[in-house]
C-alpha cells in the first residue's frame, strides 16, 4: 500500500538508541515494549553515549543486540552486583540492570537486596512475568498460587512452593532506596505510566539520588498459553490483585 507522508509529521518512530535488529521475543511479549521504553528514555535524556546496560540470563540475554549503548551480559542473578562494579568503577556512567523474576528475585536474591541496601546509584528494571520463559515455562518465585507451569503441572501449591514473592515490597522496607515502584504494560495508560516511572528512575541516577527499582508486570503469552490480548487482560484482572500497581517508595 503506497503511503504518502509528505504533508505529515512523524510523531512516533524507532528510538535512536535501538539498533535495527529485530527482537527475539515471542509475539505479544511485553519485553519488547519495555525495551523500546528504555531506549526512548535514553534518547530523551540524551545519555546513549554514557549508558551501560547490564543484561540478565533469560529471554533478555540478547539485549546487547538491540541497544546502541554498551552492554554487559551478567551471570544469572548477578546483574545488580555487576552494575555495582560498573558504577563504582566509573560513576559518570549511567548504569541500568535489566532482570527477570528468576534472575532478580530467585537466584539473584542476595545481589538484588544488597545493591538496594547499599543504595547503589543505579537503575534496576525488574520484569515480573511470573514464569521462566526461556527454559520452558517453569515456576518463578512470583508465580501465582494455583498457576500451572511446567514444574507445577497441577498449579503452584503454597504448601510445597510457598507464595508469590512481593520482592519490591521487601526492597521498599530498606532505608537506602530512593524510588521503588510497580508498573504494568497491559494498556496504553499503564504503558505511559511505566514510561514516566522509568524516566524518573533514570533521572534519579543522573541526579545522583541513588537506587531506583521499577518492577514491571509483564506477560508471557507463550508460556501462559494465552493469546497476547488475553494475557493483557490476565495482568489487569488477576495479576494486579497479587501485585498491586503504584509507587512503594518515592524519596526523590
Amino acid at each position: 500500500m503506497p503511503v504518502s507522508t509528505e504533508k505529515m509529521v512523524k510523531v512516533f518512530g524507532r528510538p535512536g538508541s535501538l539498533t535495527e535488529a529485530r527482537f527475539t521475543y515471542c509475539p505479544g511479549c511485553h519485553h519488547g515494549i519495555l525495551t523500546r521504553i528504555i531506549a526512548q528514555t535514553i534518547d530523551e535524556l540524551g545519555i546513549v553515549e554514557r549508558t551501560v546496560g547490564v543484561a540478565p540470563v533469560g529471554c533478555a540475554v540478547f539485549a546487547y543486540l538491540w541497544y546502541r549503548c554498551d552492554v554487559i551480559q551478567a551471570s544469572h542473578g548477578r546483574a545488580s552486583a555487576v552494575a555495582t562494579g560498573v558504577k563504582r568503577a566509573n560513576p559518570n556512567l549511567i548504569v541500568f540492570a535489566y532482570q527477570g523474576d528468576g534472575d532478580f528475585a530467585s537466584i539473584g536474591t542476595a545481589e538484588s537486596i544488597h545493591a538496594a541496601n547499599r543504595g547503589e546509584n543505579i537503575t534496576v528494571i525488574f520484569v515480573n512475568n511470573q514464569v521462566y520463559g526461556m527454559t520452558g515455562g517453569e515456576m518463578a518465585p512470583t508465580s501465582l498460587v494455583g498457576q500451572k507451569t511446567t514444574t507445577t503441572p497441577d498449579g503452584r501449591d503454597p504448601a510445597l512452593f510457598g507464595y508469590p514473592i512481593r520482592f519490591s515490597e521487601m526492597i521498599a522496607q530498606l532505608d537506602a532506596p530512593v524510588y521503588v515502584t510497580r508498573q504494568a504494560l497491559y494498556d496504553t495508560k499503564r504503558i505511559m505510566d511505566a514510561t514516566k516511572a522509568i524516566k524518573k528512575a533514570f533521572t534519579n541516577q543522573l541526579e545522583g539520588k541513588g537506587y531506583s527499582l521499577v518492577e514491571v508486570l509483564a506477560t508471557c503469552p507463550t508460556n501462559w498459553r494465552m493469546k497476547p490480548t488475553e494475557a493483557n487482560k490476565h495482568v489487569a484482572e488477576v495479576v494486579t490483585k497479587v501485585f498491586p500497581l503504584g509507587d512503594l517508595i518515592d524519596r526523590g
Binding site: P15, Y25, C29, G32, D187
Partner: peptide, 19 residues
C-alpha cells in the same frame, strides 16, 4: 494518536500526523 505504536512489542509502527 500513536496508541498502536506505544503498544507494539516489536516497534514495527511509525506514526505520522497531518501538519
Amino acid at each position: 494518536c500513536g496508541f498502536c505504536a506505544l503498544t507494539c512489542p516489536d516497534v514495527a509502527i511509525e506514526v505520522y500526523r497531518a501538519r
